[in-house]
Design a protein around this nucleic acid. Structure first.
Length: 965
RNA sequence: GCCCUGGUGGCGGAACUGGUAGACGCGCAGGACUUAAAAUCCUGUUUGCCGAAAGGCGAGUGCGGGUUCGAUUCCCGCCUGGGGCACCA
């Protein structure tokens, strides 16, 4: 009987589905375990072999936990709103709902192929009204909440209104307008509009103005990476900064808790570091400088008699006397009032340049640019006039959008000063060498007035105290993180349940949710930078918000919905969320490190604050899967330019040369020359203008690096007559590791591999490729090895001619030893997500059992239980074949019998001065003295000692022995 | 530019807490079975030198230093691949 994986896999997939084997109940006596994959966006390109990597890993773990007796929730659904579907609609006129449906069906079919244990009865899509009803509902709760910094939690906005009526906002400063102060009496005096304006500045989801990359020609807002050198990636149209009305989430209020929460979760240190760097909490001071300018009449009192001031944020107030210039962001409002006429032209020119630059470019730029404003800040202690510059390296959104530059201590400031010839003040003596800045905090300050002689890190506090005393500065905690932009001028997203009445945002009532997305036929932008919904008359007539929510809205809470997916009373019942609690294991890529993970952590904290769920961190443990890269293959095409008829010939008969003959510079390989003359039957052909161009070729028609010539000719009609110049009778392709993508022809479709080798082989091979966390290139070649392993396993049960060969004899100690050693390794590997070594342990196990010629049921059935998470289909088949009751999915995971594994001695490596010279078998319970005696008596050791007496003998039990001479 | 991360045979990788570097698999080479092929099995496979062989000596985990009896593992500096940088998801 042969290993017929296709029929086995089909059979079991069908049976499992019929029996509902993957249905999970919210009511179980077993302990719960929640395994989740990051929400997939169903892209039109379908799955390539890189996508299922994380799903296979989580599937193995979910199945493993089930065998270990847990009630395991392992759901799947779709993050179905998003830009690609909308762009596809714009390009092809297909409604996003239609293309999304098609994509999802394809996605599902591909997933089913691989044999996952998802509970599909819990599936949902973010774009379905029954789901986004609750996304809208949570948005409304955010809108109706504010963050009480005293209690460090979100509270209903009515509570705030009551407080403001009682005591004004003295105890609860306004996060959106920090300088705003009013009393209870003043509050009561405000009109409705003013009150709403103020409340908006407290709400956790709020509407404000924000700068976006605006492309007039496309009529849309662009992402930073869609803007290249100031023009749109598509079409090359100019892009400028434009202020638009936007919704935001006040995630900055949660900054501290998002930071602290990292201590309670099991994420990698790298992940935690990335998140805390993103949050970017820093301690420092805001310092306000008087400004001297001749603009608008001159003198310290600038235009109109209002004294202009410049407030900067610094983490290093100790360097206050090393300030040589100030830099304000190009967007800084001070530029409107302090520039003397003679500097206006230069500054305007600079600002025009900056407007064309994306934030990304501004941050990445090495080239130094900037412009002197003509105004000066007055040093609060020395009274010196410090020139104020503007430069793109200072960003408006961070701190106050202005910095005090200390070139001797900051590398960027130093380079700026050097470039513009600004004299540098040294406040740290010898510690600054004049060649580069020194950012130390350990130096002793000089030239620093009241800070002279102090160590810098001690001077920080003293400087802040003095600034506060003088009333020109305050201690300040700052965050790099900004509030999250929560609106898009797009169609394919959740509509905001907001009605605009006289410029006031009025939330819709819960009973009117969901606010359904209207059907549209045209996907173009609306007027004034508004989204497509602004073109829908029925929509605008109701004065509904025309923005939609961004891609991450639906994915910020989906893990809760899986717990109770069909509930239409509430987003997730408290009973369900209390039962399942945190996601125990979350698997996904690091590309979500700071976006999705922070947003969903914030939403969870918010829902917890308001009492709708009982835990405040969504994910207990996070494992990051690496990327599977593509391994591209190249062919080298000859281009014969210069003579028209030859050019025509190469079009009809394209000529490709093998990798080793391609030659880069000038000279052609003689084989090529001869071949070309032969192909075109023209000995005098002019070869001096031949060029070789490199083209991607479909990796699926290349075996290793050898091109399948016939398949290549069929690949594209223009290659039907292709001619090849071979080396050793083969066409060898070039290769390179790149991102896996259709345009590079390096994608490999899992469907093909499953058809050829089966899902079990495919699953194991994906794991065998390397650690889940690591990025690695895909190479189909090695899959044979894993497939051979499964066939070899099969041969433990069946023989081609004899049929069934497994027996019910009792196993020997040696057989038990091999089995339990294997189980132990597999179990340990699975526990620590080292699935590649898990597969390898199974291979070794099967090799050794085969070597022992063991076909005993009691050994084999334990072995296949441990194999089940990795290769469920073949395991279930063999389980049934051996006559076992019930499904192997719920079989008890075998317990390792340690008694078979006990060893009494070990072959120790013996090293002389760190170099291994021999091996000695020594009892495991040997003492130091016994070991020394044995080792020093050994002839080989004596030889290496050359008569010298050893200094010491290092003996690490169960590890090694080292003799130091 | 900033933050995170990786670099080990021809290739994917193993070595879990500083203790025999290269498990397992691919590929390659040689062999067995076969009319032949497929499948399967066996042997070898980091590298240099010596040796018919058994084996021996040396080098070796991106590069250069350091700590240690001992470093792929820890520390410092450098080179280089990948991911992220707020409207791709």
């Amino acid at each position: 009987m042969e290993y017929n994986f296709t029929s086995i896999e089909k059979k079991w997939q069908q049976l499992w589905q019929e029996k509902g084997s993957y249905r999970v109940s919210n009511d179980s006596s077993r302990p719960k375990y929640y395994v989740l994959d990051m929400f997939p966006y169903p892209s039109g390109a379908g799955l390539h072999v890189g996508h299922p990597l994380g799903y296979i890993a989580s599937d193995i773990f979910a199945r493993y936990k089930r065998l270990k007796g847990f009630n395991v929730l392992h759901p799947m659904g779709y993050d179905a709103f998003g830009l690609p579907a909308e762009q596809y609609a714009i390009d092809h006129g297909i409604h996003p709902a239609v293309s999304t449906e098609t994509n999802i069906n394809n996605f599902r079919r591909q997933l089913d192929n691989i044999g996952f244990c998802f509970d599909w009865s819990r599936e949902f899509r973010t774009s379905t009204p029954s789901y986004y009803k609750w996304t809208q509902w949570i948005f409304l709760q955010l809108f109706e909440s504010w963050y009480d910094r005293k209690q460090a939690k979100a509270r209903p906005i009515e509570d705030l209104v009551q407080l403001l009526e009682k005591e004004g906002n003295a105890h609860h400063p306004c996060p959106g307008e920090p300088r705003l102060r009013f009393t209870a009496v003043e509050w009561k005096g405000f009109d409705v509009r003013r009150k709403e304006e103020i409340l908006m500045n407290y709400r956790l989801s709020y509407c404000g103005l924000g700068e976006v990359n605006w492309c007039e020609a496309l009529g849309t807002v662009l992402a930073n990476d869609e803007v290249i050198n100031g023009v749109s990636e598509r079409g090359g149209h100019p892009v400028i900064k434009k202020k638009l009305r936007q919704w935001y989430l006040r995630i900055t209020d949660y900054a501290d808790r998002l930071l602290e929460g990292l201590e309670k979760v099991d994420f990698s240190d790298a992940m935690k570091e990335m998140q805390s760097n993103w949050i970017g909490k820093s301690f420092g001071a805001e310092v306000t400088f008087e400004v001297y300018t001749t603009a608008g009449g001159g003198g310290v009192a600038g235009g109109g008699g209002v004294k202009p001031q410049l407030t900067v944020y610094t983490t290093r107030p100790d360097t206050l006397f090393g300030v040589d210039f100030m830099v304000v962001a190009p967007e800084h409002e001070i530029l409107n009032s302090v520039i003397p006429d003679e500097h206006k032209a230069a500054v305007d020119e600079y600002l025009t340049y900056v407007k064309s630059r994306s934030e990304r470019e501004r941050m990445a730029e090495k080239k130094i640019t900037g412009c002197f404003t003509g105004a000066y800040a007055i040093h609060p202690f020395s009274g010196l006039h410090i020139p104020i510059w503007t430069s793109e390296y200072v960003l408006a959104g961070y701190g106050t959008g202005a910095i005090m530059a200390v070139p001797c201590g900051d590398e960027r400031d130093f380079k700026f000063a050097q470039y513009f010839n600004i004299p540098i003040t040294n406040i740290i003596g010898d510690v600054y060498n004049g060649q580069e800045a020194n950012p130390t905090k350990e130096a002793i300050l000089e030239n620093s007035d009241f800070l002279d002689g102090l160590v810098m890190k001690d001077a920080i506090v003293i400087a802040i105290n003095r600034l506060e005393e003088k009333g020109i500065g305050i201690r300040k905690v700052n965050y790099r993180m900004r509030d999250a932009a929560f609106s898009r001028q797009r169609y394919w997203g959740e509509p905001f349940p907001i009605v605009w009445k006289d410029g006031i945002a009025v939330p819709m009532e819960e009973k009117d949710l969901p606010l359904e997305l209207p059907h549209i036929e045209k996907y173009g932008p609306g007027p004034e930078g508004e989204g497509p919904l602004a073109n829908v008359p029925e929509w605008t007539a109701r004065r509904l918000e025309t923005n939609t929510m961004p891609g991450y809205a639906g994915s910020s809470w989906y893990f809760l919905r899986y717990m109770d997916p069909h509930n239409d009373e509430v987003f997730c019942s408290r009973a369900a969320s209390d039962y399942w609690g945190q996601v125990d294991l979350y698997i996904g890529g690091t590309e979500h490190a700071v976006g999705h993970l922070l947003y969903s952590r914030m939403w969870t904290k918010f829902l917890y604050d308001r009492g709708w769920i009982g835990h405040e961190e969504p994910y207990k443990r996070l494992v990051n899967q690496g990327m599977i890269q593509g391994s591209s293959r190249f062919v080298y095409r000859l281009e014969l330019r210069g003579s028209h008829n030859i050019d025509e010939l190469t079009r009809q008969t394209p000529v490709f040369v093998s990798y080793g003959l391609r030659e880069g510079g000038g000279e052609l390989h003689e084989l090529v020359t001869a071949a070309v003359r032969n192909i075109f039957d023209n000995p005098n052909i002019d070869l001096t203008t031949i060029a070789v161009s490199t083209l991607h070729v479909d990796v699926n028609i290349v075996d290793g690096v050898e091109l399948d010539l016939e398949a290549f000719k069929k690949w594209r009609s223009e290659y039907a007559n292709a001619q090849f110049v071979l080396e050793d009778g083969k066409y060898i392709c070039g290769s390179e590791v790149e991102k896996m993508s259709k345009s590079k022809f390096n994608t490999v479709n899992p469907d093909d591999l499953v058809a050829r080798y089966g899902a079990d082989t495919f699953r194991m091979y994906e794991m065998f490729l390397g650690p889940v966390e690591a990025s690695k290139p895909w190479d189909t070649k090695g899959i044979e090895g894993v497939h051979r392993f499964l066939r070899k396993l099969w041969r433990l049960f069946f023989d081609e001619t004899k049929g069934k060969i497994w027996t019910t004899e009792n196993a020997t100690d040696a057989e038990w030893k091999v089995l339990y050693k294997t189980i132990k390794k597999v179990e340990e590997a699975t526990e620590r997500f080292s699935f590649n070594t898990g597969v390898s342990a199974l291979m070794i196990g099967v090799n050794e059992i085969t070597d022992l010629n063991c076909h005993k049921k009691e050994v084999l059935e334990k072995l296949i239980i441990t194999l089940t998470p990795y290769a469920p289909h073949v395991s279930e088949e063999l389980w049934q074949v051996m006559g076992n009751e019930g499904s192997i999915l719920d079989a008890p995971y075998p317990t390792v019998q340690e008694k078979y594994l006990v060893e009494s001695s070990k072959n120790y490596p013996v090293a002389i001065n760190g170099k291994t010279r021999t091996e000695l078998n020594i009892a495991l319970d040997a003492t130091q003295q016994q070991v020394e005696d044995i080792v020093l008596a050994d002839d080989l050791v004596k030889k290496w000692l050359e008569g010298k007496s050893p200094k010491k003998v290092i003996y690490v039990k169960n590890k090694m022995i080292n003799v130091v001479v």
